[in-house]
Design a protein around this nucleic acid. Sequence first.
DNA 1: TGTACATCAGTGAACGCGCGTTCACTGATGTAC
DNA 2: TGTACATCAGTGAACGCGCGTTCACTGATGTAC
Lengths: 223, 223
Amino acid sequence: MSIDIYVCWTVERRPRKGRLDMRVTKAQAEQNRAHIVATAARLFRERGYDGVGVAELMAAAGFTHGGFYKHFRSKADLMAEASASGLSQTAARTEGVDAAEFVERYVSREHRDGRGDGCTIAALSGDAARQPADIKTEFAAGIENLLTALQAQSDTPGDADQRATRTMVIDMLAHSVGAVMLSRACPDGSPLADEILDVCRAEILASLTHGNVDGSEAGGPEA
Amino acid sequence: MSIDIYVCWTVERRPRKGRLDMRVTKAQAEQNRAHIVATAARLFRERGYDGVGVAELMAAAGFTHGGFYKHFRSKADLMAEASASGLSQTAARTEGVDAAEFVERYVSREHRDGRGDGCTIAALSGDAARQPADIKTEFAAGIENLLTALQAQSDTPGDADQRATRTMVIDMLAHSVGAVMLSRACPDGSPLADEILDVCRAEILASLTHGNVDGSEAGGPEA
DNA sequence: TGTACATCAGTGAACGCGCGTTCACTGATGTAC
DNA sequence: TGTACATCAGTGAACGCGCGTTCACTGATGTAC
């Protein structure tokens, strides 16, 4: 047993040295904020919500971590905003794209291998399932927007019953999302990963032309 | 500015008080290990790989965290083992289940709302996509086993070309996984969450009976 | 079969690290006069 | 239009906490004789 004696000068709080070029234009600040959101959307898609820290994220956007809370109340807030941003981007990109072209692009190696630049639904719906209501609400809104974009291209004008189109579009989206997610869960470059993608793409495209036009069994939800 | 003086007795290393009932039967230890793996599989499905810590996991299994490393080299090792365990459970449960019954069970509210007791693919393939090769390898093996189980029920005996069955089964699995994951990403109890599930279940079942029997467009992968 | 000793599953405190968050400070921008 | 001052985006050190992992220790089990 020994006796140690520590002597320490407690300074009130250490003085900070200054730096140049502070304060930024209001417009610039808004632009910076948008850039942080876009960077976060990409990083979250690549590594998941838990896979990216605030400091790393801010560094990737070209800032230090301290300023984060001048823009967002918390990381959770940014998660919701970045999700909304990513989801609306996917919907916007789909504007004017018909079902077949959507499937060709979505159920592809390029999409599967480019998670950061791809669809937020395929990249983060597994994570979203465990997140609080605000994020799930953003996902539901994002999915709904994407469905609307897809439906706009597939609706036969004059078709009084748009129910069938919505059914088709919902089913096609879930089918495509499942194909990409399943393929991504397999080792990179494994035969199964490619097989899933190729089989599903062909089957989804085939189902579009065959067209399950009768809505007999494809009834809506009970509600 | 003030001066603080700390005086502290540094003991070599504090003695530990003992505890009763240590050391356990070899068989008991093996059983404990299996219990930890099963507990981990469930918790990972519920909250994701990053959502469960070693200490919490061991506590849930009824142990203290220190013993963890008597069973596993690292958390990453357990992640792979728990994934394998969960995946093989799903394949085993599917033994003797035909495609229609599989879809009815899989694309259901019960499955969607019971992540911990459900399919590891639907719960963790989003996470698996970002994990190292060993976990992805387990997923590929698990998927392959599940495909085999499903194919065994759907193969027409005497059908020389089992290629079409495999195609159907791969497509059906991806379709079902996508439906559950998409539904889970929506707010709990939201109309869209239920609509996705109901629409997809009906469509998948319909596609089973309609049967895209011609394999013309549904060719295999290039390889 | 009985006895002496090594093994090792389990314990609980500790370690180092990185996380989300806070805070004092800076100084150009934005605003009030 | 010019001047004085408040605002606030951005900085970087610090905080507390929980994570994965390590370690000295325990004592019944398992084994060698």
